[in-house]
Amino acid sequence: MSELWAHTLTWADVNPARHPFEMDDDAAEELARLVAPLLPSAEVAREDRWRTLNPVTEFLADRYGRWACGWNWSVGEGDADGGVVEAWCCSSDSVTTPDATAPLVVAALQEWRGWLKDLAERFADLAPPKNTPVTSTDLWYWERACTRLVTVVADRTQAESGWYGHCMQVLRWFLAYNGIDEAQAEEIVTNAVGGRFGSWIAPDAQVVDAVSSRFATGVSDIR
């Protein structure tokens, strides 16, 4: 079921420009009605509820695109470790009756989409000018971008359990946004972070500076 695992999403999967999505109040109510029959009942054992959410995730991904599988990527140790969604806690606590749970699913999906739109706007603001030669100024753009993205992801995830996984993913997304292929992006980010981030603690300025410097150098090496 890796196709439904938010950790594997690429920028092509989540780029809002490629996957239009609009939802007014009426559409939100209609989606809640469609989701409700797919939800587990409150009688399902708490530890098993996460497995029974797959039909919901499959439905959302089929309807809106694979990006939607991040709808329940909540903060901390939820259904998937280290996300940004606060509207949904986890299957063991958020699932009650279908009618009460369905609106939470919709709110979580909207929150996740809002985060993706926010990232797209940040990427546009942080991207170096087109056709900028590799100079110290160019490196500054990449360092600044890495610093700001690490900071915002640490804040949105509250630097809780596994937060750095999504942080590294966001850095890869930014590189993809700027035309760097997935294999190169993976290498750049892995070399830059290199185990410097950990769960339950936001990195200090010195660590972020070191990661950002390595990130920028990694980009310059391929340009």
Rank of each mutant, 00 (worst) to 15 (best):
S2G: 13
E3Q: 12
H7C: 00
T8W: 03
T8I: 08
L9I: 09
L9R: 01
W11K: 09
D13W: 02
P16Q: 14
P16E: 00
A17F: 05
R18K: 14
H19Q: 08
H19C: 05
P20Q: 02
F21Y: 15
M23I: 03
M23C: 13
D25C: 05
E29L: 13
E29V: 05
L31V: 11
A32Q: 10
A32V: 06
R33N: 09
L34S: 11
V35N: 03
P37Y: 11
L38N: 08
A42G: 10
E43P: 00
V44F: 00
V44K: 09
A45E: 15
R46F: 11
D48R: 11
W50K: 00
P55G: 05
V56H: 07
T57C: 06
E58P: 00
A61T: 13
D62P: 00
R63P: 00
Y64D: 07
G70V: 04
W73T: 03
G76T: 08
G78W: 10
A80L: 12
D81C: 14
G82C: 04
V84K: 06
V84Y: 03
V85L: 10
A87K: 15
S94I: 04
S94W: 04
A100P: 01
T101P: 11
T101F: 05
A102E: 07
L104Y: 00
V105Y: 06
E111H: 08
E111T: 01
R113M: 11
L116R: 11
L116Y: 07
K117M: 15
R122K: 12
R122S: 01
F123G: 13
F123T: 10
A124I: 09
A127S: 15
K130V: 12
N131Q: 14
N131G: 13
T132Q: 15
P133D: 13
P133K: 12
P133H: 12
V134W: 10
T137R: 14
W140I: 05
W142F: 12
T147I: 09
V150C: 07
V150S: 00
V150D: 03
T151P: 02
V152R: 07
V153Q: 08
A154L: 02
T157V: 03
T157Y: 10
S161M: 09
G162T: 09
G162R: 10
G162H: 09
Y164S: 12
G165C: 06
H166K: 11
L171V: 04
W173I: 08
W173E: 02
Y177I: 05
I180R: 02
D181I: 09
Q184E: 09
Q184T: 14
A185H: 07
A185M: 09
E186F: 08
E186W: 06
I188Q: 04
G194E: 13
G195I: 04
G195P: 02
G195K: 00
G195M: 03
G195D: 07
R196M: 07
R196N: 04
F197P: 05
S199F: 01
I201Q: 15
P203K: 04
D204I: 05
D204C: 01
A205C: 01
D209F: 01
D209A: 14
D209E: 12
A210E: 12
S212R: 02
S212L: 00
S213T: 10
F215R: 02
F215C: 04
V219P: 03
V219W: 06
V219H: 03
D221G: 14
I222K: 13
I222F: 07
I222N: 02
